[in-house]
């Protein structure tokens, strides 16, 4: 096993290119997951049993099946019914949808944790349903769940290499193509691991800070 530093510097720009796409996919996926999760959580609270049940089963199904197969589904099946998506868009939709079902649970717990008195007070002030949600419930429910949400976004970051399977040129794919060109696997693969380790340990530090900042709010 011989490690060649010159080779490392040579492939670094290509890998950095991949890191950018990986981070972009994570950020877009996180935004989508935050929105989808809220949608699922609200739909599951719906008065309409049909809506809440079917959304519940749908979320359960997505959570019980691998993201990779879902990505294939979006990438290969949707074009057959006329929806042609660029790989990165398909990947972001897959990430957002998959993790949306996880963040939905976080939203659910967060919303359940808002004391009932707050709902009653909103009613007493004659606020409409919409205003109750946007002015009373969500502003109290969301800050305490930020650390838990961030946790899932870090998990999502570590799943982005899957996008290489649907031809997105993120970090893993760049590393693989470099490795195949030079037929040297040690440096690219190890560097990918190092990138992931550094970024996710860095995000854990950020997470600790978020927990400190939002985790304990006065009850």
């Amino acid at each position: 096993m011989d490690w060649d530093w010159n080779f490392v510097w040579e492939i670094m720009p290509t890998l950095i290119q991949g890191v950018k796409i990986t981070i972009l996919a994570t950020i877009l996926g996180s935004i989508l997951a935050a929105i989808v999760g809220l949608g699922i959580a609200l739909a599951r609270r719906s008065e309409n049993r049909l809506v809440s049940r079917s959304v519940g089963w749908f979320a359960e199904f997505i959570r019980g099946t691998p993201l990779l197969v879902q990505l294939y589904f979006i990438f290969y099946v949707l074009p057959d019914i006329g929806i042609l998506l660029p790989p990165l868009v398909a990947g972001v939709i897959g990430l957002g949808l998959h993790y949306g079902t996880y963040t939905a649970e976080v939203y659910r717990a967060g919303i359940d944790n808002v004391p009932r008195g707050q709902w009653e007070a909103a009613k007493a002030c004659n606020l409409s349903g919409h205003h109750t949600w946007t002015h009373i419930i969500l502003p109290q429910a969301i800050p305490p769940m930020i650390p838990a949400l961030a946790n899932y976004f870090i998990a999502m970051f570590k799943e982005t290499p899957l996008l290489s399977a649907i031809t997105v040129l993120e970090l893993m794919n760049q590393a693989k193509s470099v490795a195949n060109t030079y037929y040297r696997y040690i440096e690219p693969m190890t560097l990918v691991g190092a990138f992931f380790l550094v970024i996710s340990l860095g995000s854990v530090v950020l997470l600790r800070w978020l927990e400190h900042r939002y985790g304990r709010i006065e009850r």
């Binding site: 570590k158 799943e159 982005t160 290499p161 899957l162 893993m172 693989k176 693969m189 190890t190 990918v192 691991g193 992931f196 380790l197 996710s200 340990l201 854990v204």
Partner: peptide, 12 residues
Amino acid sequence: FRGTSIFVQLFW
């Protein structure tokens, strides 16, 4: 093992 991704570990 929690910090690096499962795919990286597998490929490695």
